[in-house]
């Protein structure tokens, strides 16, 4: 199983709970805003602590059974809704921030994302689509064991969406990383998800 999630979390007036067992490929959490989908990703990434439950990814327990692995040791490749690039670092430094060892994959990854010409730019000069591709590259270069995508297309126009969509499919089919993605767009859910979980 790629993801085995059984969690509960009270956030203000909302009770977020999810039980999920997902195999290979991409699992999409689909549903309206405010259902706590992003909170689920934050809990899998270790940024938010569930009130109770278990999170197991690829057979390794990240939370539960008395364990709570800190986010920096979970090796989640997290792509947020906003790119969250570090504004005081150029694109290259952003990409290298999470690199663990010698990255011979650097050229491959910036190549398929088409961001090789952006390396010396500052994040504030990038378009939304460029910033999001850099964010995906940065997440992939940290050698993640799985990818968390939080509405990575929502801030982009149609043409840019297609670029990112292709990149995500490449990650799913070629790099074969387990993906947990949040969206409220049925079309995206259909296209990316090997399975869709309604929340």
């Amino acid at each position: 199983m790629s993801f085995e999630i059984d969690i509960e979390k009270r956030l203000g007036d909302t009770q977020v709970s999810l039980t999920l067992e997902a195999g290979e490929g991409a699992t999409v959490l689909f549903g309206p805003s405010g259902a706590g989908k992003s909170s689920v990703l934050n809990m899998v990434a270790g940024l938010l602590r569930p009130d109770r439950g278990r999170i197991v990814v690829d057979g390794e327990t990240l939370f539960g059974d008395g364990l709570d692995v800190p986010p920096e040791r979970r090796r989640a490749g997290y792509v947020f809704q906003e790119a969250r690039l570090f504004p005081h670092k150029r694109v290259r430094a952003n990409l290298l921030y999470g690199v663990r060892s010698e990255a011979e994959r650097f050229e491959d990854i910036i190549g398929f994302l088409g961001i090789d010409h952006l390396l010396d730019r500052w994040p504030r000069t990038l378009s939304g689509g460029e910033a999001q591709r850099v964010a995906i590259g940065r997440a992939l270069l940290s050698q993640p064991r799985f990818l968390l995508l939080d509405e990575p297309l929502s801030s982009l126009d149609r043409a840019r969406r297609e670029e990112i969509m292709l990149a995500i499919e490449h990650i799913r089919d070629v790099l074969k990383l387990p993906i947990l993605m949040v969206t409220h767009d049925p079309e995206e859910a259909e296209r990316i998800g090997n399975r869709v979980v309604r929340m």
Binding site: A45, G46, L47, P70, P71, E72, R73, R74, R75, A76, G77, Y78, F80, E82, R84, F86, P87, Y97, G98, R100, R138, A139, S142, L148
Partner: peptide, 10 residues
């Protein structure tokens, strides 16, 4: 949120 992003990057 930037700090959280950095945490997930290791």
């Amino acid at each position: 949120r930037l700090e959280n992003a950095a945490r997930t990057l290791g």
